[in-house]
Design a binder for these strands. Structure first.
Lengths: 225, 225
DNA sequence: TCCGGCCCTGAAAATCTGCTCAAATAACAT
DNA sequence: ATGTTATTTGAGCAGATTTTCAGGGCCGGA
């Protein structure tokens, strides 16, 4: 479950936020001042922080700066009653990712929260270890490959080679480059392993399909496109 | 340099945005309708997109959805004259990362742009590997060439030669220089390969077009202009 | 006008590349 | 040990690329 931290000194607003977010299946922790917030946000990890600017002790801007100085990457949504342009600019420059002026509508807040979170979880769960190219899917965790939902069995070398292509889509890869990346060959050997393996891959990946993926550029190399 | 794409049909606002962003050292490309935007944003890579909601053809919301459906990860800032909460929510749900209501202050826009770009340090590597000369485009990444949108197939040597010209536009290149750069020939051989290849290039690049690009300077060499 | 230098062009020759197949070798599990 | 699979090597071949070569046009100078 996604975890959200709130720093807000007004108990009514804090409660409102907490209940609204919890209704949308987020886990919520709140603190009422900047000092506690700094400690909590640095010690536990959150998916998103909502920070009010006006707080006793340490204000939102200062808190934000401190967090960023400590290399915290968590997205921050800043919240405030002050609505001048310079306030917003100051907040964003302090390291906030979004800035919402009170009074705000809960719907907008929730939409912005969702927008900020959209980028984060994707990085940890799926996008991180799965590579996509058109209908090809390569899972670097399970080392499985499929095209258009159909599983494809690849040998170790074939997998490494395909992964190389999928990490460099639409990029022309020279034999030299492929040899270095997939075979650890740094000198010129008169071998044609690469050609042979390209053909192995083609047979497995393109055999039952209309669309060709690996293209030959004579005298240059191969390209996935 | 960070590259920003703008989809905005109002020429005044488009010009305003472009000049403001360029003053802050961003590279800016603008299109005036949703259809062109979809094509441009999918074919070239940007660090950030600014999209107006109200556009002829394809509106901003639809554009945004299409882009996300095509797996585009680029951050999107949506811009609009409509300021109701539901509009904002719709925009954010369509895949936008931020939503700004017109009229807005340039300072706030710039701050939000900076905040969105802050999250994208890795994007640098995907920068632009393309060389442009008039309607000619050469992609050093995929080794592809096109003129006025039409793809042109070049052999390896032809490509190297054209790249040499496009890296030295409007500069006169002597045969000596071309031989050294593209052929690794450092001495005088009685060959005319260069002439022949210039001819090959001309046939492929200038055949179907009015405007000539490679010009001969007798006794001196060739020049792209 | 004739000549020579310079460039363009078409075609043929020479070279090289990438694909395929079969077979040798290596790695691995039973 | 044995069999299976994965990886690498090498040779033949078709086709594309690269290079050479020779003819011809253009232009300026003698």
């Amino acid at each position: 479950m996604l975890k959200i931290g709130i720093a807000e000194d007004d108990p009514k607003i804090a409660a409102l936020l907490k209940s609204a977010l919890e209704e949308n299946d987020y886990q919520v922790l709140t603190v009422a001042n900047g000092i506690d917030a700094l400690e909590l946000f640095l010690s536990e990890s959150f998916n998103l922080l909502i920070i009010d600017v006006m707080m006793p002790g340490l204000n939102g801007i200062q808190l934000c700066k401190h967090l960023r100085e400590n290399n915290l990457q968590t997205p921050i949504l800043m919240l405030t009653a002050m609505g001048t342009i310079d306030d917003k600019v100051t907040g964003l420059e302090a390291g906030a990712d979004d800035y919402l002026v009170k009074p705000f509508h809960l719907k907008e807040l929730l939409a912005r929260v969702a927008a900020l979170l959209r980028r984060q979880p994707a990085a940890e769960t799926k996008a991180d270890h799965k590579l996509y190219f058109e209908d090809l899917v390569l899972d670097t965790y399970s080392k499985e490959v499929s095209r258009a939902g159909k599983t494809i069995e690849l040998s170790a070398k074939e997998f490494v080679l395909l992964e190389l292509f999928m990490r460099n889509p639409k990029r022309l890869l020279s034999r030299q480059f492929i040899a270095e990346q997939a075979w650890d060959i740094n000198f010129e050997t008169g071998t044609n392993v690469i050609d042979v393996y390209i053909n192995f891959l083609r047979k497995k990946i393109e055999k039952d399909f209309e669309r060709k993926l690996i293209h030959t550029k004579i005298n240059m190399g191969y390209i996935l496109k």
